[in-house]
Each structure stands twice: as structure tokens, then as C-alpha cells.
């Protein structure tokens, strides 16, 4: 372990304001893309189902 306590870890040896935003954006990108891709899939399948229902009703 490089740090003695959680507080020391969060302070990052005085570099907290540089280290955490860089890591924050990385987490945001990874999580954001995952959620976006899943949302995209759900929406596409829903749209497909709606169209199928519409078409079976009219035919």
C-alpha cells in the first residue's frame, strides 16, 4: 500500500485536484458508453416490436 489512511489516499499527496478529475473523466467515459450502448439496444428492440404490432394489426 502506498498510503497510510483513506484520508491520505484521497489527498493524493497534494495532487488531488489533478489526479481525481483525470480519473473521473475516465470512469465517466467507460460507464457512460456502457449505459449508452445498452440504452441504444433496448430502444431499437422496442421500436422493432412496436412496428411489428402495428403491421400485424393492419394486415
Amino acid at each position: 500500500m502506498a498510503f497510510d489512511s483513506l484520508a491520505a489516499f484521497l489527498t493524493m499527496g497534494g495532487y488531488a485536484k489533478y489526479v481525481w478529475p483525470a480519473w473521473g473523466l475516465a470512469v465517466l467515459i467507460i460507464a457512460g458508453f456502457t449505459l449508452w450502448a445498452r440504452f441504444e439496444r433496448r430502444q431499437l428492440l422496442q421500436r422493432l416490436k412496436r412496428r411489428q404490432r402495428r403491421e400485424t394489426r393492419t394486415s
Partner: peptide
């Protein structure tokens, strides 16, 4: 990798803990 980068790997002798940015950069 994140836990290792942020909490376990030693600080740099010149840049201190600011070098931990390298692990996303």
C-alpha cells in the same frame, strides 16, 4: 488495474502522486 495504480504502486520519486495520471493518460 485501477486499485493497483491508485493505491498500491509506489509514488514517483520526482512527481510524487501526480504521476498516477499516467494510468489513464
Amino acid at each position: 488495474g485501477s486499485f493497483w495504480s491508485l493505491a498500491i504502486s509506489p509514488p514517483d520519486y520526482q512527481m510524487g502522486d501526480s504521476y498516477r495520471i499516467i494510468y489513464v493518460h
